[in-house]
Every structure is written in C-alpha cells, then in structure tokens.
Design a binder for these strands. Structure first.
Lengths: 241, 241
DNA sequence: GAGTGGTCTAGACCACAAT
DNA sequence: TTGTGGTCTAGACCACTCC
C-alpha cells in the first residue's frame, strides 16, 4: 500500500477548497506557520506543498503579503492538445491502418527553406476502420535524418518512424481551415472545396529541420477538443522510460 | 541584483546539457550524491532541482536505477495555445474594436442543455483595424450570471466582461473547420462556403454553465500557431495578482 | 520594524528496485 | 543486500514588502 506523502495531502486539501469555491480568488490562505500547526509538520513540508500549487498557478505567493488564491487569467488563453493520429483513432475504438501513396527522393525547392539539400517527400493516407481519416503530406530532411532514405514507410507510418529514430527537440504547429483541393478531396472521398482542418507540423532536432508535415482532416469528421480546469492543465504528456 | 538560486542553477545546467544534445535520451545523470559533491551543497538542494526537472518531464527518476534523460513521448501529442482575441489582434499591432450586432434575452432551447432556463444570446463582430476578424455568437446563462442582463456589451465585449465578473473554473474548447454560411459569410465579407476555423468554447463555474461561444475566423486570415520544445512548454499563462 | 515566503543545511528514515 | 531516490525534520539566514 502506497501512502500519500504529507506534502501532497496538504496541496490536495487546499486545491479542493479552491476548486469547490470555498476559497475564492483573492482569498488569503493560512500562512506557512499556521499550516505547520494544523498539520503538525515542519515548515519545509508545508513550503513544498505551497510551492507546487504556486508552480501550477493556483495560488500566488508574495513575501510579507502571504499566499492568496490566484485569479483566473484576465486575457485568458487556453490550450488544445493535438493528439497523435494513431492514438486518436485507436482511442475511438477504431482500427488504425495507413497507406503509403507516394515516396520521392528529390532535391529541396526554394520554398522549402531549411529542409536541407535532399529530402524525401511522402504522402500517406491514415485510415480509421478502413475509412479515410487524414491525408498527410510530409517532407523529411535527408541531411538531418539520412537513415530515412532506407526506412520502410509502408510498414510503419513516417510519423512513428521519426519519433523512434529522430526525436525532435523543437516543434511548431499551425492549425488552419482550408478547402479540400482536387487531389486531397479525391483521396479523402470529399467533394471539392469541403472545409477541412489543416494541421501543419514542423520539427527540429538541435536546430536542424527534421520534418515538415501537413495533415488534412475532413472538417465535419474531426475536431480538436480540450477540456480542463485551471486546476488541472491538459499538459499531461506521458513520457516513456 | 537578484541572484539565481542554486537549485535553479543546477537544474538549468542539466537542462542545457540535455537541450544541446550532450546528454541524449537514456543517458544516466549523475546521482544526487555526485551532484552534491560537484556543487558543494546539501542533498535537498540537488533533490529540488531534479524534482523540478522530473515534474517538467525532462528526466525520469527511479529508485535504485537513478535518473536518466527522458525519451520524447512516442505517441507525441502537442499543445496549441488559443489566444484571447483582443490580445491576438493587438499583438499583431492592429487596433481592436468590436460591434454588438444582436442581443436577445430568451428562454433556453432544448439543445442548449445545461445553460439554465433563461439566457442572453449575443452576436459580436470583432474587428482588427476596422476589418472583420471574427464573428462571435455567444450564450450566457442568466441562472449562473444574472448580472449579465444589465451589462453593457457595447462598451466591453462579452468575453472580457465575463472574465472580469464570472471567472470560470472549467473550460472546454473545440476546434473545427466549417464553411461560412449565409449570414456569417456576409458579416465577415466572405463568399458563401469559404472555409473557416471555428472555435467553440464553453465554460463553467463550479459546475454551472457560464457561457457557450462560437467564434468563426476566415480560414485564410487566421490560424493558430504554437512553437515550443519539450523543454519549455507553451503553458505560460500569466496570472494576475 | 516585523511578518511572510525563499532558500539552504545536515542530518534521518524509508521505499523501491536491481543485483 | 545495497544503491538510489522520496520524504521529512528542526533549525537557520536572507529578501522582500507592507505598515
């Protein structure tokens, strides 16, 4: 049986009182000295609990002024998680599969700045229960990832291969709305101009471009959802090993 | 002059070695005892630095096995920040303004479940340098926020008013692609069916629905961008007070 | 000046997992 | 069994900032 550490119990207690509305934004939380007495523990233990809450943005601590429940951000931005395609499909209880439609090794063009001199261009269709789910067009820099030239992208989709062989250190995502153009519409079984969600993703490894991918989702069939409270952010990226 | 705490200096040192690629995923980081010797400090100080890195997912700590540099997530999900409209416009150096197009107080319909018995329906056009930027349709529950009935939404846009008067404790966002329908297209100055990014946002306060809003952005003019490394998440929500 | 949090120490015992 | 991290103590000094 795993007992809950005291510092986490203290933090949870306070978090619950904030979440329930018992302690409203601006409410002054008991001082460390008072919490020491309440929980009968050393100051470091209380301090750790409060530091954790502060790091998560639930409370604001200021010397002399004490610790108060934080106000929600006034200009509230929010976060949406972009799921991995395969996880997304399997998470819906559907069977994931993919088809490699195109594979070309070629020099990079002027508008593909930063992708290195030679690259692979791929087109992959991702399917959920054998129905088209996403069309992905992807470039992989052979300067940064020369091994990609000999990878079998019919076996594993390029996204998964890259994560296993070329973990990124930096990424950029862009979400926009586009109309399905001729070829994309055909591949996805849509009529021309159907609104689609376009997810553009670029990654780098130590400053060198690894890949640049565009994924097009039928607008009606796919959307990005995020639900959270200020208490628990969606930043729960599971890390292996 | 503010000196950097030692625990943060230790964490930064290690972070830098990970980011630079000097310490690759799987690399075993010196033990706490070794770091104590290296920095000439107590174990608690080293421990705090490592605990911080662990909480941020940069390293994985296991008893007996030691601390190793984390592998990037295999099924990598990522996050995109949804900015506040006004900040977004002003951040681009444009002048923000807004027009209230519609304001109705009415009973809620069956498909507006959870919004309370009476609500306000609003339609607001957000402009950047006097050009249409977003059309927003919004419901506000008068059960949860009765003060909204007397608020002047021509002065402050409803989103800002709500954040000031009814901070949420829970939120849900949904991003999808839609074609501009007749009225939306007219308001935004688009032709019918133009692909648009639709941002749906619902918020709750202690379990009670506060608001439900749909914002439609011209697909060509707007997109969501997020750039980050695993080291520094985009989770940089500024908190007031 | 005094109250509050921020950091740090030099120990201690325990939990867990690899051997 | 033993090495490693996880937690905790009982102090200490300092940095801020409100009064």
């Amino acid at each position: 049986m795993d007992i809950e550490p005291l510092h986490r119990r203290i933090a949870s207690d306070i978090e619950r009182r904030i979440a329930s509305g018992e302690w409203r934004p601006g409410f002054r939380i008991p001082t460390e000295a008072e919490l020491m007495a309440e929980y009968g523990c050393a100051r470091m233990t209380v301090s750790r609990a409060m530091t954790d809450l502060s790091a998560r943005g639930l409370v604001v601590r200021r010397r002399r002024a004490g610790t108060v429940v934080a106000h929600p951000p006034v200009h509230s931005s929010a976060l949406v998680a972009i799921p991995d395609i395969q996880s997304e499909i399997e998470g819906r209880g559907l069977a994931y599969s993919h088809q490699l439609l195109l594979r070309i090794v070629r020099p990079s063009r002027a508008d593909e700045d930063g992708m290195g001199a030679r690259l692979i261009e791929l087109e992959t269709l991702h399917l959920a229960d054998a129905m088209p789910f996403t069309l992905e067009r992807r470039l992989i820099s052979l300067t940064t990832a020369p091994e990609a030239e000999h990878a079998d992208f019919t076996a594993a989709p390029p996204g998964g291969w890259l994560l296993a062989h070329m973990p990124w250190t930096e990424a950029e995502h862009r979400i926009s709305a586009v109309g399905a153009d001729g070829e994309t519409a055909t591949r996805l079984g849509l009529s021309d101009g159907t609104p689609c969600l376009r997810l553009e993703r670029r990654t780098w490894r130590d400053g060198l471009a690894v890949t640049w991918a565009w994924q097009t989702f039928p607008g009606a069939a796919y959307d990005l959802v995020a639900r959270f409270s200020p208490t628990q952010s969606p930043m729960k990226t599971p890390i292996k090993e």
